[in-house]
C-alpha cells in the first residue's frame, strides 16, 4: 500500500484456481474503504466489482493483478490477467453467457453474470482482451 496526500494505491496478486483465498483482495479493499469513511453505497459497488473481477481471475486466467487507486473523487480499479484472453468480448458481456466448467459452477459461479455485474456497478467500464495474451478491465466508481 502506498499513500500520498491525495491518493492511496493498493496492489494485489490473485492466483489462478485458488478458491480458498479468492476474495481476500476484495475483502481487504472493502475494509480500507470503510476505514476511510467512504459511503456504503459506493463501497457496495466497489466490493461487487472487485470481487467479481477477483473471481474471474481465479476462474478464467493464469493469474493476475488488481490495482486500486483511491482519490478524493473516485475509486479506480485496474484488473489485469496473464491470459488466455476472451475469444468474443461481446458474448462474454451478455448476461447468462459463460465458459466456466462444471467445477466452477459447483462453487456458485460461472452463471454468466460476472462481467455484467461489474459493468452495472461501474461509472466507467472498459474491457480490452487479446487472445493468447490477457484481459484488462478498467473500472471507475465516483465517490459522489
Amino acid at each position: 500500500m502506498t499513500k500520498d496526500s491525495n491518493s492511496m494505491k493498493l496492489n494485489y496478486d490473485v492466483d489462478s484456481n485458488d478458491f480458498t483465498r479468492a476474495g481476500e483482495a476484495s475483502s481487504n479493499i472493502k475494509k480500507i474503504l470503510k476505514q476511510l469513511g467512504v459511503a456504503s453505497k459506493v463501497i457496495r459497488k466497489v466490493s461487487i466489482a472487485t470481487y467479481e473481477a477477483e473471481m474471474n481471475i481465479a476462474i478464467h486466467s493464469y493469474g493476475g493483478k488488481i490495482n486500486v487507486e483511491i482519490t478524493p473523487k473516485e475509486v479506480q480499479i485496474v484488473v489485469k490477467d496473464n491470459g488466455p484472453g476472451i475469444k468474443d468480448v461481446n458474448l462474454a458481456m451478455k448476461e447468462g453467457y459463460s465458459t466456466a466448467t462444471e467445477r466452477i459452477r459447483e462453487l456458485g459461479f460461472g452463471a454468466g453474470m460476472g462481467l455484467p455485474n461489474i459493468k452495472k456497478c461501474a461509472d466507467v467500464f472498459e474491457l480490452k482482451s487479446e487472445e493468447g495474451k490477457g484481459t484488462k478491465v478498467f473500472i471507475k466508481i465516483f465517490l459522489n
Binding site: 478458491f19 480458498t20 479468492a22 476474495g23 476484495s26 475483502s27 472493502k30 456504503s40 457496495r44 466490493s47 461487487i48 470481487y51 473471481m55 462453487l107 456458485g108 459461479f109
Partner: peptide
C-alpha cells in the same frame, strides 16, 4: 438461504453486508 457450502458464500455475504 442456500445449499452451497464453500468459502465463496461467506465472501459473497461479506461483500454486500
Amino acid at each position: 438461504l442456500t445449499g452451497l457450502t464453500n468459502p465463496q458464500v461467506i465472501r459473497t455475504a461479506e461483500m454486500i453486508d
